[in-house]
């Protein structure tokens, strides 16, 4: 069976006055039906641009310059706008970080939801409204009839994000791309959204790409993790494997940087330096200047090498498989 989504050697570059920023530089991954992929990286790693590229949402001066995005057999890069128009909001939906930016502030929720339904399906207004109500119930908004008649500003942050999720669910998409949807929310609300999305994906068989900077949030949710750095995937594998035995020094550094209580008050292990500018990337391995294991070999560019059938890592000196960072 073909995978639901197959991204091969994706290149998304931004042509700025100061030079070409290769925000996404050769990203490849596949996603099966119903799978949850965590796309993890710090700011500027290209994780969001990867998500935007799939839906063709990259604005000038950015442009997809190469690669292939196969969604259920259709190439979205070659197909361009006409191919995407049928898929956006219908088979692929996106949830953004800030729901205040995605919801139209001057339209009521029902107007926006009915519009979404009728954009793809020729149904009556009443039927569209019924579907909108159903979606609101599904994400736990009550009372749905009253809330349908509200404007976005009348909702709290968590509620707005639920409305955005409800809109994403209207057409029962095959794939949801969620770009840091809980970053702006409080922990208790974040837990609610996580638990809801988890149930929804499990019951409807929707695949999910969860884009985040927070490894801990995604570790309890994703089947697979892909860690990005400077526009590339540097490590990929099943979540449990990547978290328990990270092979790339950067992944290990990320996990060590998160305060985890056991070493209360002590110094955290830190990654030295900072993320390089995309306009001035170092030669060879992009992580080399910050890497504790780097040597002369790293002046050449490493490629993403499969370690097992499930895992791959982009490093000349990966950590040993036997070293466990976390005790399960």
């Amino acid at each position: 069976m073909n995978p639901l989504l197959q991204v091969t050697d994706l290149q998304t570059h931004f042509f700025t006055r100061d030079g070409v920023a290769k925000a996404v530089d050769g990203v490849s991954f596949t996603l099966e039906k119903g799978q949850v992929l965590g796309l993890v990286g710090e700011s500027g790693s290209g994780k969001s641009v990867t998500g935007f590229s799939i839906l063709g949402l990259v604005d000038p001066p950015g442009r997809i310059t190469g690669g292939q995005i196969l969604f259920d057999g259709t190439d979205l890069v070659a197909g361009g706008e006409p191919a995407l128009r049928h898929l956006r909001g219908k088979r692929i939906a996106m949830i953004f970080q800030d729901p205040m930016m995605t919801l139209n502030p001057v339209l009521r929720i029902d107007t926006q939801m009915v519009e979404t339904v009728r954009a793809h399906e020729d149904v009556s207004h009443a039927e569209a409204l019924r579907r909108a109500r159903e979606a609101l119930v599904q994400v736990g908004i009550s009372p749905p009839d009253e809330r349908l008649k509200s404007y976005p500003h009348q909702f709290s942050g968590g509620m707005r994000q639920r409305v955005a999720i409800a809109i994403a669910l209207l057409h029962k998409p095959d794939l949801i791309i969620a770009d840091e949807p809980t970053t702006a929310l409080d922990v208790t609300i974040q837990a609610q959204i996580l638990s809801e999305l988890q149930t929804l994906c499990a019951t409807s068989g929707t695949a999910l790409i969860w884009i985040t900077h927070d490894l801990a949030v995604v570790s309890g949710l994703a089947d697979r993790l892909a860690v990005m750095y400077a526009g590339r995937i540097i490590e990929e594998g099943p979540t449990a494997e990547v978290i328990a035995r990270p092979r790339h020094p950067y992944t290990r550094g990320l996990i060590d940087s998160v305060p985890r209580g056991k070493r209360h008050g002590a110094m955290l292990t830190q990654i030295k330096g900072m993320t390089p500018s995309l306009l001035k990337l170092p030669k060879g391995c992009k992580f080399m200047p910050r890497c504790p294991r780097a040597d002369r070999v790293c002046e050449a560019e490493p490629s993403l090498v499969p370690l097992t059938s499930e895992r791959s890592v982009r490093c000349f000196h990966p950590h040993d498989d036997a070293e466990e960072v976390l005790q399960p």
Partner: peptide, 24 residues
């Protein structure tokens, strides 16, 4: 108790999120 249970931690298995109901 609710806050502590919701600190995101590194999981090596799938975690079922237990949400506190309602909003602030």
């Amino acid at each position: 108790q609710a806050l502590v249970s919701q600190i995101p931690t590194f999981e090596t298995g799938k975690k079922t999120y237990q949400a506190i109901k309602g909003e602030i």
